[in-house]
Every structure is written in structure tokens, then in C-alpha cells.
Amino acid sequence: MTPYERTVQKELMKWQKKMLKKSSFVNRISKRMQTKVQTMIPEKVQRMLTETIKRMTQVMLFGSNITTIKKCEEGLSLADRDILVEQKLKEYTKVAVVEGAGTGAGGIMLGLADFPLLLGIKIKFLFDAATLYGFDTKQKEERLFILHIFQLAFSSDEHRHRVFQTIDEWDSKKYEIEEIDWEKYQIEYRDYIDFIKMLQLVPGIGAVVGAYANYQLLDRLGEYTMNCYRMRILKQKMLHIGKVNDE
């Protein structure tokens, strides 16, 4: 392994502990408050959010109209790929911040419009990041992996532990679409961002909240995406080295 890869491996060990850490008292209280807020959101709005998540997820897994950037040249190091992904994340974050501020300043209707727009930005970033790390997003298996990263980044602590285990074992097991609990997936994502995005609808602070919330959500997605692919790439490399040594 290169010095950079060894440094990344140490970072990943700390991140993995963070992923498997039990929920703190503050997080448990926050979850209860979030659940209470959830009951205050009109059922019509909840149905709209849920349907949006479902449709865009189906497009992500089964659609052929998602365009991605061109594949990188072969032989790029992990350090090179990390730099390219960080640059791409900055581009998408800028778009998300402007979009969040614009829709947040436009009142309730535009505030609600931010939800599917932001979801689209996140999905597009995930596809581009996968390509930059050398994975073929045309393959259903890779789209499923993207879906799991999405779940990992935007779900409760309890659900995150299970998803992380799946990602950690990804290349040693085969996962099928039928194994995904779609209802759970939609609820976890919707509940995770509902409270944040609902504040965006408040007159007077919507623009500021929208910009800040979108920045934070993209930053979180970037961290989780990079670490998931780093972990996978290093695991594949170690497996390859092990096979070579056995021969």
C-alpha cells in the first residue's frame, strides 16, 4: 500500500467506529422530537415526499436516462480519484446552496419544490463519484451500492448500523433488489431531513436555512460517499494482494 492509502486506512478505522457507535442520549432525544414534529406535518405533504423518494429511487435503479461524466483514465491512484471527487462535490454543493437559498426565499410552494430538486442533485453526485472511483454505474449492482450509500448517509443510527454492515461485506456477498425494504428506506430518508427542510418553509428565514441545510446535507453525503468507495477499493486491493501472495 502507498503512504496515502495507509493514511486513508487509518482514517477509515476511525470512521467505521463512528458508524457503529451507539446512539447518544442527545440523538435519542432528537429522534423523539423529530417523530413528534413528523405528526405535525400534513399527511398530504408526507405522501408527496414519500412518492418523490420512491419515483426518483426507481429512476436511479432502473432508468437509463441518468447521464454521468466520462470514465477516468485507467491507473489513477486513490489520491488522484479523491481529489477529483472533492472537486466534483464542491461543484454540486454550490448548486445545492444556490438552489436551497432560492427556493427557501420563495415561500412554501418553492420550499417544497426544493425537496425533489435536492434529491436529484444528490443522486447525480453519487453517480459521478462512482464513475470517478472507477465503477460502472450501468451495472445494477453498482446502482444498488449507490442506494446503500444514500441510506447510510441519511438514516437513523439503528438503521445505519445495518446498512454499514452490508456495505462492509459488499464484494463478498451478492445483494438483490428484492432484499431492500423500500418502505423502510423511504421513511428513514424522509424522517432524516423532514425537520431540517420544514424550517426552510418558515417565512423570513427560509433562504438562510435552505442554503445552510443543503450545504450540510451535501457535505455529509460527500463524506459518506468517499469513505464507502475508499473502503471498498482498499478491501479489493488487499484481497488481490492476498491472492497474489498465495500463488
Results as ranks from 00 to 15, higher is better:
M1N: 04
T52L: 11
L218I: 10
M238H: 13
S64R: 12
L20G: 11
E11Q: 15
L89Y: 08
L61D: 02
L84I: 02
Q87T: 11
F164V: 05
T67D: 06
L89N: 07
L199D: 10
F125D: 01
M226D: 10
L221H: 03
L147I: 00
S24W: 14
Q46N: 14
E5C: 08
M48F: 09
L234V: 07
H148C: 06
S172W: 13
G107W: 09
L221V: 07
A130F: 00
Q46K: 14
A96I: 07
A113Q: 11
K71C: 01
E142Y: 00
K22I: 07
E5A: 06
V209L: 09
L152D: 02
R230Q: 10
R160D: 03
M40G: 12
E223F: 14
G75V: 01
W182G: 03
L218D: 06
V244D: 15
T67M: 03
G106D: 10
L112T: 05
D128L: 00
V97E: 05
M48W: 08
E99D: 15
L119F: 10
Y189H: 04
S156H: 04
Y92I: 13
Y189P: 03
D80G: 01
F127Y: 01
D181V: 04
M33Q: 13
K22H: 08
G104Q: 07
E11F: 14
L49V: 14
Y192C: 06
F25G: 14
Q151D: 03
C228P: 08
N227C: 14
L152H: 02
T131I: 00
W15A: 13
T93A: 05
D246N: 15
C72D: 02
I205A: 04
K237P: 03
R47K: 08
M238R: 14
T93F: 04
F195K: 10
V98Q: 13
K54N: 11
